[in-house]
Amino acid sequence: MAGKNEDIIICRCEEVTLGEIREWIEKGYETFDELKRVLRVGMGPCQGRGCREMILREISAKTKVPVADIHPGTFRPPAKPVKLAVLAEGGDK
């Protein structure tokens, strides 16, 4: 049963499983940004929209810190992916 859950893909952009996330939390990578840097979770096109909450809950389960008190990691622009050609045209200053 546990083995089955471990294969669930949590970060779909970068195809990272629950098992991998738990393995690295266990090794001491206990913040969202550390997991992002070692596993690339949240670095794909959705920028963590799909996986962030689930990963914060996993960190909470290990560290016993409430999800609301865990730093959610850094948010960077753009808010959604934008084509290079559109950006290259510029905008109003």
């Binding site: 670095m43 920028q47 622009p77 753009p78 992916p81 934008v82 084509k83 290079l84 050609a85 290259a88």
Partner: peptide, 18 residues
């Protein structure tokens, strides 16, 4: 972005994520 599309024109439709 201007540098990208000038230097690598096939990236015009590629999206910046971060």
């Amino acid at each position: 972005s201007r540098t990208f599309v000038r230097l690598l024109p096939r990236t015009k439709g590629v999206r910046v994520v971060r």
